[in-house]
Design a protein around this nucleic acid. Structure first.
Lengths: 222, 222, 222, 222
DNA sequence: AGTTAATCGAGACGGTACGTCTGGTCTTTAA
DNA sequence: TTAAAGACCAGACGTACCGTCTCGATTAACT
């Protein structure tokens, strides 16, 4: 599962996917223990849940908590930050299926999921921190972006494309901006202003406001 | 100017602005040197501009660069992070005046300013980091929020209220959400996805999209 | 009283004792306060008596305890060690008069005084430390030697000379060694092995043993 | 070799000499390097020999000189002073064998050794300082006393007992004082008044003077 | 069954930075 | 001018981590 370190990421699944391959290279010696792997990630999660301030997490302490040698961590990850990427991944909720009834409902579901994530006790303070830290390491952020954000974004883009196709959404809007119009208002609250996550029903209100526009309807008022 | 440490923040400007006041208390001992203060903040800025990776900034190094004792820094700020708040403040651009021609134009100006800040070489990578770090220190973030973000937000809220009053903006939208509808899409890009700052003209496009709505105008009206 | 710094040593008592004199030279500005001087020395003594480990004495702390500015101390003494010389001097007991009945009795009185000093609570642990420290500063040790040890030594040498003159002491012994023969055994105990100070009567036993010799009297004489 | 910290002192040589024993305990983790150990002690010696004033020795500087991390020093010794005990020990000359011809000659050999130690360039100023410092740390002094002084003292006591047994020394003298009568005069010079170490032949003169007594022989003079 | 090689926990290693404390000096205001 | 106060630069204090490196002891896969 850990993969930021470098080739490991690619080769680990490779050895699994390459069919007969496992024997080919002939990895020798004792294989890495998955148990240990999980123990490490879980140690981080546990520490964070126990209220250990994020800044007090250290490889040294994580190793101690997990009952693991420091080298065992460095063997798998390049450093604290790389480890966090996997921790975050292990905590990200699985994207639930979209209702599919209408583009509007799908968008609401997506935005609502962001809200839920912001509310989750675990995620809230916790993810927020890891998040903030990760931003200072472009490489890691990129990689997180690639493996976690991008797929979700793609899922949303599909919904939007469907909306454009079936006339639920205007076709003359910069597509790159379109997604952010829906996602931005909620993200700004959950990520940038944690603790200020909007209440129930906000997802719908955001989606509707963006769809309908904020300017008074022209018809009657004229 | 440094103020996270205690009441200094509030009182420093006070003692400056309160006219004759300075003599009142009769502080004893050698007063703190403003020169030193500036030297410290500037040392941080210089280091960051010289490409020193953010994670390599340390009080020790900052002191060395500024030609200052470590204690002199700790005397003013509670730690690295508190110092950064002031650094960020010293670099934040002054909010330019709003055109005032229409609510729409004012909003564009505000959003455009966010874009500009994201573009500024200094701000970009640099501020982004300090920013990210600060998010892990709730106290600091609060305080930054209070002194930097809130005033700007208030400025925007006034514009929005004006818009509601003069009919440029619907009155039936959750006011708390309203601001984020405009600000969110741009912030998401500049803060959360630095390096992906939208191109020229995006501010207008965002404001217009949010105003008009993303749903196609009702059939006949087109 | 302080004198290591320079000529002050000689002039201090002068300015103090000379009554009307103070005007003579025409010193300008606020005169140095003797109160302050005593406060400093006493602060050191008090701290030591309060059981503050010697190594934790610092100019900073002494100044704080004495309610005095650091500069005020530096104005009088060259440093911690120079100050200690005066502290030690302020605590050294005055040499009592010698009985003068016989050279042997005078020597016993001198050695007994060394024993007493070693026993004195204040002196014991306390002086011992200052003592030990001073030894690492040749200059200070010299000066302590000159003002405190040498006079006492001279007093003893006179006794010894008297002894040689009146036949109580052999004339064929290296005079330089002679003093140490009496003084050494006791000093070794009180200075080098504090807490092992010999019991009552040791002074006499030492003096007599050195006088008579440790070898059994020649056969027949017994 | 370092032993103040704990049992290491006793057990380290044990594990080496005890043949098969090493397996017993089953030390875990990387073992401490003896090379490093020596490097540290030697760094101190070198610095002192290079004329670095004793007061300028700091763990920081010692570590730098030895090319060693500070923690590596603290891992072995409790502090500067504890380290010095081992430094002193590494510099103490090995006690040479006694001639054994007569008690008088053995005593001369012992006292002469003290003189030699006081003369040695290395020892002289150097040992004197460490010595002086150590006296301010009762624990350390005790321990130095136990491991270095006491054994030598015991050796001397044996000589004295032999002297009493074979009639070379009077039996009616307080045995506790006896040793100091010989040792005191020389120690006072080498330890308390470094730089004033007596010249060649003093050991004999001291021993003889103490043996014979300082009072003129009664026989002829009467 | 034996060999081989990478793994594991543990912890030493050279470093760097932490936040605190001292050492001396300098700069204020008050006396 | 001196005094108290306290800021100032410098740098040591002892601790905590960093990422690397031995250790002895497992632990599989390959002989």
């Amino acid at each position: 599962m850990p993969g930021v370190s470098g080739a490991a990421s690619a080769s680990a699944p490779a050895s699994g996917s390459a069919g007969s391959a496992s024997s080919a290279a002939g990895r020798r010696g004792r294989p890495r223990s998955e148990v240990v792997e999980r123990a490490i990630v879980e140690a981080v999660v546990r520490l964070l849940e126990d209220g250990v301030p994020f800044s007090e997490l250290s490889i040294e302490r994580i190793a101690r908590t997990a009952g693991v040698g420091k080298a065992t961590i460095y063997r798998r990850w390049d450093g604290k930050e790389a480890l966090f990427v996997d921790v975050v991944r292990s905590m990200e909720p699985v994207a639930p299926p979209l209702p599919g009834t209408s583009v509007r409902d799908d968008l609401v579901a997506i935005i609502e999921m962001l809200r839920q994530r912001g509310l989750a006790k675990r995620s809230s303070a916790l993810l927020h921190n890891v998040f903030a830290q990760m931003q200072s390491y472009p490489q890691l952020w990129d990689m997180y972006h690639r493996t976690s954000i991008a797929p979700r974004r793609e899922r949303m883009d599909e919904v939007l494309r469907r909306g454009i196709a079936n006339g639920e959404i205007r076709a003359d809007i910069d597509f790159g901006l379109l997604g952010d119009l829906f996602v931005g208002p909620m993200l700004v609250r959950t990520v940038l202003r944690p603790g200020d996550t909007p209440e129930q029903g906000s997802a719908e209100r955001i989606v509707d406001a963006v769809l309908e526009g904020v300017r008074p309807a022209e018809g009657p008022s004229r």
